Simulated assay, not measured.
Amino acid sequence: MALKAGARIISSADAEYPRLLVQTRDDPQILFVKGRLASSPEKSVAIIGTREPTEHGKIIARRLTEFFVEDGWSVVSGLALGWDGIAHEVAVSAGGHTVAVLAHGLQTISPKGHTKLAEQILESGGALVTEYRMGQGPLPAQFVKRDRTQAGLAQGVVMIQSDLKGGSLFASRAAIEYQRWLSVPYPTPQDVSRQEPKVQANILLADGALREKSDLLKCEPGDLERLIVLRSKSDYAQMIHPLALPSPPDQTPLSQLQLF
Rank of each mutant, 00 (worst) to 15 (best):
V158L: 15
L224Y: 03
R8K: 15
A87Q: 07
W73G: 03
K165N: 13
K112A: 14
G82H: 09
P53Q: 08
G125I: 13
E220Y: 05
I60S: 10
S232P: 00
E196R: 14
R148H: 04
Q150D: 01
L139Y: 14
S168V: 09
L205I: 04
F32L: 06
S110N: 12
Q179W: 02
A2E: 02
I176W: 07
L257E: 14
L102D: 08
S110T: 13
G125T: 11
V184G: 00
G208H: 09
K213W: 02
P28L: 07
V33G: 10
S74K: 03
L257H: 11
S172K: 08
P246W: 04
A38N: 01
A175T: 05
G126A: 05
G82Y: 11
L21P: 00
G156R: 00
H114W: 08
M239S: 11
H88P: 10
L21H: 01
P253T: 11
D207Y: 06
V33N: 09
V129F: 04
A38M: 01
F32C: 04
T98C: 15
L21E: 03
W83I: 15
P41I: 02
D235G: 08
D26W: 09
T65M: 04
D215Q: 12
K58T: 09
F68Y: 13
L139T: 10
R231Y: 09
Q29H: 13
S162V: 09
A151W: 01
G113V: 06
P189E: 07
D163W: 11
D223I: 01
E123L: 13
I109D: 08
P246A: 03
L217T: 09
R25W: 09
L245K: 11
R148M: 10
Q142R: 15
V22E: 00
F68A: 04
V192P: 00
I47F: 02
G105F: 02
A175I: 05
K112V: 10
H114V: 07
V76R: 07
L230Q: 08
D163F: 08
L117V: 13
R231W: 07
L210F: 01
I121N: 12
A174R: 15
H56E: 15
D215M: 08
I9L: 03
T188E: 06
I160E: 11
T98P: 06
K213F: 05
F170Y: 15
L64S: 04
R133M: 10
A209H: 13
A61E: 15
D147Q: 11
R25H: 12
T115N: 09
T24F: 04
I48G: 03
Q161S: 09
T24S: 10
S234N: 12
V69N: 03
L37A: 05
R19H: 11
